[in-house]
């Protein structure tokens, strides 16, 4: 059943409306477990749109297997998605930097507060992101090291290729995931694909993983396909490759490619002179999990990220 979670008046004859679709078993038994599937916080990330569609379809195909509540929120930032805007139109701050929000804050912080209230009490939340328009990402879960112990076991159930446990940073304390984890709702942040595009194969892979997670939680009783075991980054090095010259980036290595240290993984070229400005080399041996898709680069633009092998302690 589609429900309105938030409705806020806009100046002229319109409301900003955030909705969810609640799927639940016909027979209401005992205490039901609840999972929230959230996406569309960043208006230029669309991979989650397909995931929401496909998850809806898979569950509604076999309602008899559903044993808990699934709340699907396809668009946390509907004005952003509708205007191809990453952030919130007319608002300075990234929506994923104002959680947990406040009733006393500006409109968007009030909205965020109400979204938090709606998700509070859930047994699990999956927050689906799609990188940005510049970079393609291997399907992965990102976890703040502070919550790793609790979340890595869930992340292994969700059928991604990679789990990145990263250092904590104060500025990340205002994300949806951090705020929900703080109030006891385990929240997994998925990053996959690239902005403004839909990669159906990644979407299907994640849906299988979400069903598997739901099965482990007792929300889903249907069959689930094979689930892959992700590489967990904890004891591995991560190599960052940033441009040192402006120009046009022509990537060579693809996502999932294994590269050796010093391999040429792309070139930065100058269309005016025909010169190669920079031969971009892999800083470490490993697997490419991030690759730049948007060609124009400045000094500093992220080009690739590489997951190194297990480091000896």
């Amino acid at each position: 059943m589609v429900e309105t979670v938030v409705s806020m008046g806009l100046p002229v004859d319109e409301h900003l409306v955030i909705r969810k679709n609640r799927l639940m078993p016909e027979e209401l038994g005992k205490e039901l477990k609840r999972i929230g599937i959230v996406t569309g916080t960043h208006g230029d990330e669309l991979e989650g749109q397909f995931v929401c569609y496909e998850l809806n379809r898979r569950i509604q195909e076999h309602p008899e297997y559903l044993q808990g509540i699934v709340d699907i929120y396809p668009a946390f930032n509907p004005l952003g998605i509708d205007s191809i805007t990453r952030g919130i139109p007319m608002f300075d701050l990234d929506m994923n930097r104002i959680f947990p929000g406040s009733e006393d804050g500006p409109m968007m912080e009030t909205i965020v507060r109400q979204l938090m209230d709606d998700l509070a009490g859930a047994d699990m939340c999956v927050d689906i992101h799609a990188s940005n328009i510049y970079l393609e990402e291997m399907p992965q879960v990102r976890i703040n090291e502070e919550t790793a112990e609790r979340l890595v076991p869930y992340a292994k159930m969700i059928n991604v290729d990679f789990v990145w446990v990263h250092a904590s940073a104060t500025v990340l304390e205002s994300t949806l995931a951090y705020s929900l984890n703080m109030i006891g709702v385990p929240t997994l942040v998925v990053e996959m694909g690239v902005g403004m595009r839909i990669t159906e194969s990644y979407g299907c892979q994640l849906v299988e993983g979400i069903l598997n997670l739901m099965k482990e939680m007792g929300i889903w009783a249907g069959p689930v396909g094979e689930v892959r075991t992700p590489i967990v980054s904890s004891d591995r090095e991560i190599g960052f490759v940033n441009a040192d010259h402006p120009g046009i980036y022509l990537p060579k290595a693809r996502i999932f490619d294994d590269v050796d240290e010093g391999d040429i993984i792309g070139r930065i070229v100058d269309p005016m002179t025909g010169n190669i400005m920079e031969e971009v080399k892999a800083p470490i041996a490993g697997k490419v999990f991030t690759r730049r898709e948007y060609p124009i680069v400045y000094s500093g633009s992220l080009l690739n990220r590489i997951l190194g092998g297990v480091q000896e302690q």
Binding site: M8, L10, P106
Partner: peptide, 8 residues
């Protein structure tokens, strides 16, 4: 000149 609901 324009305001939304719940704005400061």
């Amino acid at each position: 000149p324009l305001v939304t609901e719940s704005e400061i």
